[in-house]
Simulated assay, not measured.
Amino acid sequence: MSTKYLKADAKAYAREHFRGVWAATTTPFRDDLSLDEEGMRRNLRHWIRDLQLGGLFVSGKQGEFFSMSVAERKRTFELAVEEARGHCGIVTSCSDANLDVVLELARHSQDIGADYVVIHSPVLHFHHDPEETVYEYYRYLSEQLDIGITLWNHPDCGYEMSPELCARIAELPNIVAIKYSVAREKYRRLTELAGDKILVSTASEEEWLDNIIELGWQLYLCSTPPFLLQTSADQRINEYTRLAFEGRHAEARAVRDSLEPARQAFRSARPSGTPQAYTKYWLELLGQVGGPVRRPLLNLTEAQRAAARDALARSGLKLA
């Protein structure tokens, strides 16, 4: 096992190293829907070296993990770790409905030298009081694994973990962070309850700056805005993050606000039914590798592609 810290030191290690902007990767597939390893390496090099992100969140929902085999998911982890060494951190998405698969992926992540794993709260059908079930789920994972574990919860899974439950789980030795995509009052409450024991984050780029300034956050575990709203020549998310960390809040707000035309342009053409396909096509328009999505997701129609091209032209982003 080759983690970079002892289990007992996971929280301290994360407090020092798990910081900045960590973006969720997409997974490029070829036209025959096989994994495009060279395309993924190209994207990883751009995201790591050109965009200089703090870290990458590999093969989560944006990465279509639900349509991939366990072997493919492991391979994407390996590619990310190989490309990231010495340049940025890697958190691997080990979420699955099957606990044995979660453990297999997490142990593989430990063995190849990933920094952390992220594990979604469990699927619970017909369940109206998840508190004890979810606590025991993460307690068992913490017992079985040495690597730092990031929690992940959002309303789409059918229930929201309470701040009090998250704070209780945060007492476990190698629980280091949470991607907590809930209303602001909930993640603020968790920050108050356990901000010294767990790094709290949410998916919204629009809220990131305020959360640095008002809540003292150091980590943005996001979806894909750092790939979609930044280029080699235009890195305003990185810039306002740096300014905020330096305490230059007015300058940071000015840079953050200057991105609003790009945010609105991106949102204006995004279809509600196929966000991953839209993200991949936008990446192609920026010169990265996109590729098709796998079933059950739908690819874009030609009209949707045309709308994306028009939106990018109106975004004001500086293209490399």
Score class of each variant (00 low, 15 high):
Thr3Ala: 02
Lys7Val: 01
Ala10Lys: 09
Lys11Pro: 10
Glu16Leu: 07
Glu16Phe: 03
Phe18Leu: 15
Arg19Thr: 15
Thr25Cys: 15
Phe29Leu: 13
Phe29Gly: 04
Leu33His: 13
Leu33Tyr: 06
Leu33Ser: 08
Leu35Gln: 10
Glu37Ser: 08
Gly39Trp: 00
Met40Pro: 08
Leu44Gly: 05
Gly55Glu: 02
Phe57Val: 05
Val58Phe: 09
Gln62Leu: 08
Gln62Val: 15
Gly63Gln: 06
Ser69Glu: 12
Lys74Phe: 03
Arg75His: 15
Phe77Pro: 02
Phe77Lys: 09
Val81Ala: 05
Glu83His: 08
Val91Arg: 09
Thr92His: 06
Cys94Thr: 00
Ser95Arg: 05
Ser95Tyr: 10
Ala97Arg: 10
Ala97Tyr: 07
Asp100Phe: 11
Asp100Glu: 13
Val101Pro: 02
Ala106Asn: 01
Arg107Glu: 00
His108Pro: 04
Ser109Glu: 00
Gln110Glu: 15
Asp111Met: 06
Gly113Thr: 04
Gly113Cys: 05
Ala114Pro: 02
Ile119Thr: 05
His120Tyr: 12
His120Trp: 08
Pro122Trp: 04
Val123His: 12
His128Asp: 13
Pro130Phe: 12
Val134Leu: 04
Tyr140Thr: 14
Tyr140Val: 12
Glu143Pro: 05
Leu145Met: 11
Gly148Met: 07
Asn153Phe: 10
His154Trp: 08
Asp156Glu: 13
Cys157Met: 14
Gly158Trp: 11
Gly158Phe: 15
Tyr159Cys: 10
Ser162Ile: 07
Ser162Phe: 10
Cys166Val: 14
Glu171Asn: 11
Ile175Asp: 00
Ile178Pro: 01
Glu185Asn: 12
Lys186Glu: 05
Leu199Gln: 11
Val200Glu: 02
Val200His: 01
Glu205Arg: 00
Leu209Asn: 02
Leu215Gln: 13
Gln218Met: 03
Gln218Glu: 13
Tyr220Lys: 00
Phe227Asn: 04
Leu229Ile: 05
Gln230Phe: 02
Gln230Arg: 02
Ser232Ile: 00
Asp234Thr: 03
Gln235Cys: 02
Arg236Lys: 15
Glu239Trp: 01
Leu243Asp: 03
His249Lys: 11
Glu251Asn: 09
Arg253Asp: 05
Ser258Phe: 00
Leu259Arg: 07
Leu259Lys: 07
Glu260Ser: 08
Glu260Thr: 13
Ser272Gly: 08
Thr274Phe: 05
Pro275Phe: 05
Ala277Asn: 11
Thr279Cys: 13
Trp282Ile: 01
Glu284Gly: 03
Gly287Asn: 12
Val293Cys: 14
Val293Lys: 12
Arg295Ser: 12
Asn299Lys: 07
Thr301Leu: 11
Gln304Val: 04
Arg309His: 10
Asp310His: 13
Ala311Ile: 04
Leu319Ser: 08
Leu319Trp: 10
